[in-house]
Computed example of a mutant assay.
Amino acid sequence: MSVYSLYIFDRHTECIYTKRWTDRHALPAIRSTAGGALSNGSSSTANDIPAATRRAMKHSDDAKLIFGTIFSLRRMVRQLGGTDDQFLSYRTGEYKLHYFETPTQLKLIMLTDLHVGNMRTVLYQIWATLYVEYVVKSPLAPTEHASGVGVANELFEGGLERFIVSTM
């Protein structure tokens, strides 16, 4: 079993946590790439941008695309199946996306390889035993993650790393 990445979105649709366990080149392509020009109308190319900035922009773009995919699929499931149906996962030829939403509208999304079964219980355990214990109950953690401030908790990150390694 291979876990590629984990994304956590808050109720305001902000990506508050991203973790990747494999090299980006090994991660299946989940989007098509645009040309080398910047979208803000400048004549600079992508080669003029520092590598760290390009990486941050790519992570941000990936998070936005994943959230948009989840939003669209959830809406389609509700329209076709009714309000009782839930979106749990989908699979492509390259990866499988697992989805879990908490009662407080926190969304946990995990990308894995194709041979992994249902990860809903694993995502629930990450939320209940790690996120709630180390982030929600922490007096130093912000209650809202406004303006791009994400989860920056060493205990959560260490516990998540140990948890994922133990489930592999």
Rank of each mutant, 00 (worst) to 15 (best):
H98T: 04
T33M: 14
R24F: 08
I109K: 00
V136W: 01
A56M: 14
R54T: 15
P28C: 03
F87L: 03
S89K: 04
R31F: 03
V122N: 02
R120N: 11
G68H: 11
E157V: 06
N40F: 05
T45F: 13
S43A: 14
G159M: 05
E161Y: 05
R75Y: 06
T92V: 04
F67W: 04
K137I: 11
M119V: 11
F100P: 02
T69W: 03
Q125C: 09
T45A: 15
N118D: 14
E94F: 03
S60Y: 05
N47C: 15
G68Q: 12
R54G: 14
R24A: 04
H59W: 10
H59Q: 12
A152E: 12
I30P: 01
R91S: 07
H25Q: 07
K64T: 10
H25R: 10
Q86E: 12
H115I: 11
Y4P: 00
E154N: 14
P50H: 13
Y7K: 00
G82V: 11
T13L: 11
R78I: 07
V151C: 00
E144G: 08
A29Q: 10
I8C: 02
V116E: 01
D62A: 06
V77D: 03
L65S: 09
W127V: 07
V165M: 09
G41H: 05
K19N: 03
M168E: 15
D85W: 12
L114E: 06
L73Y: 06
R162V: 10
R20F: 06
L140K: 08
P50R: 10
M76F: 07
T121E: 09
T33H: 14
L130A: 10
Q125V: 10
G35I: 02
I109Y: 00
G36Q: 13
T104V: 12
W127G: 03
K107C: 02
A34V: 08
P139H: 11
V165I: 14
Y134F: 13
M119T: 04
L65Y: 14
